[in-house]
Amino acid sequence: MCWNCRGLGDPSTVHELCDLARINSPSILCVVETQIAKNRVEGLANTLGFDSAYGVGSSGRSGGLCIFWKNPMQLTLRNFSKYHIDMVVEEQGKDPWRLTVWYGEANRSLRYKTWDMMRYLKADSDLPWCCIGDFNEVLRREEQMGPNDREMAQINLFREVVDACQLCDIGYVGLDWTFERRIQGGEYCRVRLDRVLASAEWSEMFPLATLHHLHAVKSDHSPILLMNEMEAQNQRIVVGKPFRYEVMWERHEEFQSTLEAAWGPSGAGNVEELQAKLLSTAMALKGWGSSSFGAIRT
């Protein structure tokens, strides 16, 4: 799972991240734009339910990345920068593969530095490669909905580096965007900035891998959940206990605001969007209900 959390200095954001980790049970958690120091973000490993962590500190109140992981997975650091953390992943029954979490340069005029780093990393290893994160760019104009159209030249630079690195977008399940912000005039700018890019060799290792767009309250970015066979077995809300709506939740003073925040300000334009909103709202309510009421026996 990966999330641009927009800062982990706020305890309520850490609380939401704990809920996301508990509900979805990822073996590896990647967080970008932590906006806090390296030792502070790494110190959240136990709170979030992970055994190990490696972080890159922020520059003031911008940037910052961290990868958390659980035993028995073994992650070995290859290199890092303010744009990425590159790890070799070893897990039982699989050949080693490579995971890189990315936070693309926010300044458009400097974004080429992220693309140069991707090219450098491509030449550095032949392992099956998975890239996940917020790339701060789109691959097609259709991935930005609403005002503030992107320059085609910037899009083409991203497409060129993806091709040069022999990576493919693995697609997604859920809403068509991972970033949503209301702008002046009441319109919404919605963009697919967060994604997974993978090499053909990685996709052959994990042929059933799927990417799910989730929902979060404390950031204008959606968490993205990469699920393979193992993650599907561990994912408790999809596999195992079904979601149950509890009427007693309605008596809680925070219920209405939690429900509204989970559903989001926009409606569903089609059946696929409705399905995604129902799933993400169920996940948010499940986590809130667990933290507010504890376990409920049925």
Rank of each mutant, 00 (worst) to 15 (best):
C5H: 04
G7Y: 10
L8F: 13
S12Y: 14
T13G: 01
D19P: 00
D19H: 08
A21G: 09
A21Q: 05
R22D: 10
R22E: 11
I23A: 11
I23C: 11
S25C: 14
V31M: 06
I36V: 15
A37M: 12
R40C: 04
V41E: 03
E42K: 07
G43V: 05
A45T: 03
F50T: 03
Y54L: 13
S58Q: 06
G63S: 10
G64C: 06
L65N: 04
L65P: 02
C66G: 03
N71R: 15
N71W: 09
P72N: 08
Q74N: 12
L75F: 07
T76K: 14
R78C: 11
F80V: 00
S81T: 14
K82F: 03
D86P: 02
D86E: 09
M87W: 07
V88L: 10
G93Q: 06
K94M: 12
P96C: 07
P96Y: 09
P96T: 05
R98M: 08
T100K: 00
V101W: 03
V101D: 01
W102M: 11
E105A: 06
A106Y: 05
R108H: 11
S109G: 04
K113Y: 08
T114I: 06
M117C: 13
M117E: 14
M117K: 13
Y120K: 12
D126C: 08
W129E: 02
C130W: 07
C130E: 00
N136E: 01
V138K: 00
V138G: 03
R140H: 15
R140L: 14
E143D: 12
Q144T: 12
P147T: 11
D149F: 10
E151Y: 08
E151M: 12
I155A: 03
D163R: 12
Q166I: 02
L167E: 02
C168K: 09
D169Y: 04
I170C: 02
L175H: 00
W177Y: 15
Y188T: 00
Y188P: 00
R190N: 05
L193Q: 02
L193N: 00
R195H: 03
L197H: 01
A198Q: 04
A200I: 09
A200P: 00
A200W: 02
S203V: 12
M205V: 05
A209G: 04
H212K: 10
H212Y: 11
H213E: 03
H215R: 15
H215W: 08
S219Q: 07
S219M: 07
D220M: 01
D220S: 03
I224D: 01
L225P: 00
M227N: 06
M227H: 03
N228G: 13
M230D: 08
Q235D: 12
V238L: 13
G240N: 09
K241F: 02
R244W: 09
Q256G: 05
Q256V: 15
T258Q: 13
A262R: 08
G267W: 14
G267M: 11
G269L: 13
V271N: 10
V271Y: 13
L278Q: 14
A282N: 14
A284F: 07
A284E: 07
A284T: 13
G289Q: 00
S291A: 13
I296R: 10
